Measured scan of single mutants.
Amino acid sequence: MDVFMKGLSKAKEGVVAAAEKTKQGVAEAAGKTKEGVLYVGSKTKEGVVHGVATVAEKTKEQVTNVGGAVVTGVTAVAQKTVEGAGSIAAATGFVKKDQLGKNEEGAPQEGILEDMPVDPDNEAYEMPSEEGYQDYEPEA
């Protein structure tokens, strides 16, 4: 019985440690998101679009440190934060509304985080759909 109880105690310690790591990862992701939003706020009209992409990228980098179902929630929060940063930029006159959601080359930025393969159960990952990809044929 002692062996059984000791095993359960060790398992509990492992769960607590994993929860603490997840909590730490979420806190880091939130900190990076805040950094990115402050970065966007300090940019001029020309830099705002690039700044919004930076927020998304920093958040995406930190999301990889967070495991399990938390990833889905962090990704949703990050996307809403990026959308909010863009709205703030438009409201303050840093950028025109028609410039939001495009990178410096004018290509749409939507789907940055949505296409990231995420499995809350950590069982399997699927690649994003290939609808947006084109076949590449090298020139002879």
Score class of each variant (00 low, 15 high):
4 F>C: 01
127 M>E: 15
17 A>K: 09
66 V>R: 04
33 T>M: 15
71 V>K: 06
24 Q>E: 05
16 V>W: 11
91 A>M: 12
52 V>G: 01
132 G>M: 10
68 G>I: 14
50 H>W: 13
102 K>R: 09
49 V>I: 13
34 K>W: 15
21 K>F: 15
86 G>Q: 13
1 M>Q: 00
117 P>L: 04
112 I>W: 09
116 M>K: 06
5 M>Q: 00
52 V>L: 12
65 N>G: 12
33 T>C: 03
45 K>T: 10
108 P>I: 05
113 L>K: 09
74 V>Q: 01
115 D>E: 12
110 E>Q: 05
127 M>C: 07
36 G>W: 12
35 E>T: 09
85 A>T: 06
11 A>K: 00
25 G>W: 11
83 E>S: 09
47 G>K: 07
140 A>R: 11
15 V>S: 00
37 V>T: 01
117 P>K: 09
12 K>W: 13
2 D>R: 01
114 E>F: 12
106 G>W: 11
26 V>P: 00
133 Y>L: 11
88 I>A: 03
136 Y>V: 07
88 I>N: 02
93 G>H: 06
20 E>H: 11
101 G>F: 15
4 F>G: 00
46 E>R: 04
73 G>K: 11
115 D>W: 05
118 V>T: 03
64 T>Y: 13
95 V>Y: 15
76 A>K: 10
72 T>M: 15
27 A>P: 00
55 V>T: 02
117 P>W: 11
139 E>M: 06
33 T>V: 14
131 E>Y: 04
9 S>I: 10
53 A>G: 06
47 G>Y: 13
129 S>F: 13
84 G>E: 06
89 A>T: 09
79 Q>P: 02
124 A>Y: 15
112 I>Q: 06
83 E>H: 06
136 Y>I: 09
111 G>V: 15
95 V>K: 06
84 G>H: 07
80 K>F: 15
107 A>G: 11
35 E>G: 04
134 Q>G: 11
1 M>D: 00
99 Q>M: 11
108 P>M: 08
45 K>A: 13
78 A>Y: 15
129 S>T: 10
7 G>R: 15
133 Y>M: 08
55 V>A: 05
53 A>Q: 08
120 P>H: 12
134 Q>C: 10
100 L>G: 10
38 L>T: 04
122 N>Y: 08
59 T>E: 00
118 V>W: 04
60 K>G: 03
28 E>P: 01
35 E>A: 05
3 V>C: 03
31 G>T: 14
51 G>M: 15
112 I>N: 08
129 S>D: 11
81 T>V: 15
43 K>A: 10
5 M>W: 07
78 A>V: 12
96 K>H: 08
3 V>N: 03
98 D>C: 13
131 E>L: 07
127 M>L: 07
120 P>W: 06
70 V>S: 01
80 K>Y: 06
97 K>N: 11
87 S>Y: 11
116 M>F: 04
100 L>I: 09
22 T>M: 11
44 T>P: 01
66 V>K: 03
77 V>W: 15
7 G>W: 14
77 V>M: 12
104 E>R: 14
39 Y>I: 08
10 K>R: 13
16 V>N: 04
37 V>Q: 00
15 V>G: 00
45 K>E: 00
89 A>P: 03
11 A>P: 00
52 V>A: 11
90 A>W: 13
46 E>T: 07
6 K>V: 02
56 A>D: 00
22 T>P: 00
19 A>I: 04
87 S>Q: 13
41 G>I: 06
56 A>S: 14
24 Q>P: 00
89 A>C: 08
100 L>A: 13
13 E>R: 05
67 G>F: 10
130 E>T: 07
106 G>A: 07
36 G>A: 09
44 T>V: 09
100 L>S: 13
86 G>W: 15
24 Q>D: 06
25 G>H: 15
92 T>N: 08
122 N>V: 11
74 V>N: 01
121 D>Q: 02
63 V>P: 01
40 V>M: 06
5 M>G: 01
101 G>N: 02
16 V>R: 09
30 A>H: 02
104 E>G: 08
26 V>D: 00
94 F>R: 01
8 L>V: 04
104 E>S: 07
25 G>M: 12
34 K>Q: 02
81 T>C: 08
10 K>G: 01
138 P>V: 08
68 G>Q: 03
104 E>M: 14
80 K>Q: 06
31 G>N: 14
131 E>N: 09
85 A>W: 13
79 Q>S: 10
67 G>H: 08
125 Y>C: 08
68 G>T: 12
113 L>M: 07
51 G>W: 14
90 A>G: 01
138 P>T: 06
108 P>F: 05
59 T>V: 10
52 V>T: 01
24 Q>T: 12
140 A>V: 09
60 K>M: 15
92 T>K: 03
81 T>G: 04
24 Q>G: 03
46 E>K: 05
8 L>I: 03
76 A>F: 09
100 L>R: 07
137 E>A: 07
